[in-house]
Amino acid sequence: MSAATAPLLKTPLHGLHLELGARMVPFAGYSMPVQYPAGLMAEHHHTRSAAGLFDVSHMGQLRLVGPDAAAAFETLMPVDVIDLPVGKQRYGLLLNGEGGIIDDLMFVNRGSDLFVIVNGACKAGDIAHIQARIGARCEVIPMPERALLALQGPQAAQALSRLLTHIEKLVFMTGGHFTWEGADLFITRSGYTGEDGFEISVPDSHAEGLARTLLAQPEVQPVGLGARNSLRLEAGLCLYGNDIDTGTTPVEAGLTWALQKVRRAGGAREGGYPGAAKVMAQLQDAAGALTRKRVGLVALERIPVREHTELQDAAGRRVGEVTSGLLGPSIDRPVAMGYVDAAQAAPGTRLNALVRGKPVPMEVSPMPFVPNRYYRG
């Protein structure tokens, strides 16, 4: 049976989504809620002002176990795994031999293991990739028995603290173990919206009960994939498969902030990962190795510019393509991100997007489009 004809998988919250009136769509092989009756705009604004609850159980969760796990995992990525302190979380990038991004992920040093969260559409391939390359050096243990919830927004901590004591001790990109109704939760203070918030790994058996308890808090409303997309785009965050893929390197994608000095040229553990030569050359822009860059774009007319839209310079030459775009609900302006020739990537550069054959003026803009509000203590 092909992936196209395979029945859609359901998360442990599927029944709850239907009860709440969600419109369900296929996503990463799952039946997922794209929006609830309140609608995308209301869900987006509620997350920015209070707290939104997202079902992200389609994501992949796994553990890497063994004394060599950190060193082994570091051979797959251009990031520092070995020196990550216990309790800290970091953003990572699995690369192929050409420096292209197989997936982006989050990982936490839990002391006893590395806890890894990968994208839903990539999880089977990611787990196979990791197992094939470092399975001899550490145990690679998928965790399909656990769901994942994201509680995001400026009032997320207020709501969650009624259920769990000491949750306020977590700061951005840290994690810890908590117990709720006898279930072991692992919670990180992180997310995909640009807001303060938490991602909660919970046993399937307790996922619906936890979701219902969170939704009973006055600050919390359910939020679907539609608003998740608009929130992450305003925050300048990449969507795998749109803004980054196996044909994109971390340098082209503007993700060099994720490459610590220890892994760069001259660092104590430089290179040693797939595609290192290409990534290093682009970092130093040796002989013009970096030919294109991911940029933010703001439309100067009120016309949303969608993915795959061609970008041209003033002379009508093709210089790039939009990879994500929509009307940003928080700023009430059309925003986008895309790839342009390196010479066209400076903020303030004027370009035209071809929308139904007509040029829409756009300006290269810094990201995020909406300031991030992560809680750093």
Rank of each mutant, 00 (worst) to 15 (best):
M173E: 11
P12C: 05
H177D: 09
G153L: 04
E234P: 03
R306I: 03
Q158H: 10
S161A: 15
W180C: 05
E19D: 15
G267C: 00
N242W: 06
R356H: 08
Q284F: 09
R318L: 00
Q344R: 12
S2C: 03
I134S: 11
N242H: 15
E19T: 10
E199Q: 08
A315H: 07
H14I: 07
D104F: 09
N119K: 06
R212L: 06
A235Y: 09
T75C: 09
S31W: 10
M1R: 10
V335G: 11
G226W: 01
T179S: 14
A336T: 10
E310R: 14
E208F: 02
V108E: 07
D285Y: 02
G338W: 05
C138L: 12
I102W: 05
F178L: 12
P12I: 06
S190P: 09
V220W: 03
L351M: 05
K261W: 04
A287I: 01
R350G: 03
E98C: 04
A136I: 09
P26R: 11
I117S: 08
I82E: 15
Q282Y: 03
L327R: 09
A345T: 12
M143I: 00
G100K: 04
A253Q: 13
G87Q: 02
K293F: 00
R90A: 08
L40D: 03
H177A: 13
L297N: 09
E19F: 05
A4V: 02
V262M: 02
G21A: 12
R228S: 14
L64P: 04
T47F: 06
L231D: 10
T256N: 11
D313L: 08
G120S: 12
T256I: 00
V319A: 02
M367F: 01
E43H: 01
G357W: 08
S205L: 07
S324F: 08
E307C: 00
A69Y: 06
V305Q: 02
H45P: 01
T309G: 05
